[in-house]
Amino acid sequence: MPVVTKDIVPLLVQTGASARVAEDIPARFVPGDTVLAKNVNPANHTRLPRYVRGKVGTIMMDHGVFVTPDTAAHGLGEHPQHVYCVRFTAAELWGGDASSKDTVNIDLWDDYLQPA
């Protein structure tokens, strides 16, 4: 395994390690689509927080293709897929008392979503 030495630190820090994957994978959703964040409760690693599960939102951006944390955290490969920014209204997430103006925007992997 490579050892991080002092001389490569500046380059390492400036380059980082993007989770973006250069694979041409078709997007299932486009901005404007209405989607449902799946109501799932995996015991493994996931970046689908409980507070959006089962909620309906709108695709705002398609960020492109990224490594999937749910598999990468368990040695199960990169499983590249699209990540989208999904907008949920505060009322959808928290009910009628929430501000009618406010929104929560969260980046979600394709697998976390289904058409609504």
Binding site: S18, A19, R20, R47, P49, Y51, H63, F66, V67, V83, C85, L93, W94, S99, K101, D102, T103, V104, N105, I106, D107, L108, W109
Partner: peptide
């Protein structure tokens, strides 16, 4: 769940007419 309450703790009070957009950057962006 309470962005306006959080802002108050930072000394900020926003008009109810203004939209608060919270970005939960829990993916890789």
């Amino acid at each position: 769940i309470d962005p306006r309450g959080v802002l108050k703790e930072f000394g900020i009070s926003l008009s109810a007419e203004k939209e608060v957009r919270v970005w939960d950057s829990s993916a890789e962006l």
